[in-house]
């Protein structure tokens, strides 16, 4: 089980999003408050963006 290591604001609703250790670029995380799908744009520094609605490959 992954350990939550970082908290960052959701770009959609500004709630805290916890991101698991070892997350990689282009992975998708979910904001628990607004349920937006967020894409990891960069890992260092950790940067999230609202994932586009329709894409072929989320890198998951």
């Amino acid at each position: 089980m992954s350990t939550a290591t970082a908290a960052i604001s959701c770009p959609e609703c500004e709630s805290d999003v916890t991101v698991a250790d070892g997350i990689r670029q282009n992975e998708i995380v979910e904001c628990a408050a607004c349920m937006s799908e967020l894409e990891v744009v960069t890992v260092e520094p950790l940067l999230l963006a609202v994932a586009p609605e329709v894409e072929e490959d989320w890198g998951e």
């Binding site: 709630s15 408050a33 607004c34 349920m35 937006s36």
Partner: peptide, 21 residues
């Protein structure tokens, strides 16, 4: 959302439900 979180973030029986998906 910020306002409701300020008022109800610590409340055991009030939840903020405004989701995109």
């Amino acid at each position: 959302r910020r306002l409701y979180r300020d008022y109800y973030g610590g409340e055991p029986f009030v939840r903020i439900v405004a989701q995109k998906r």
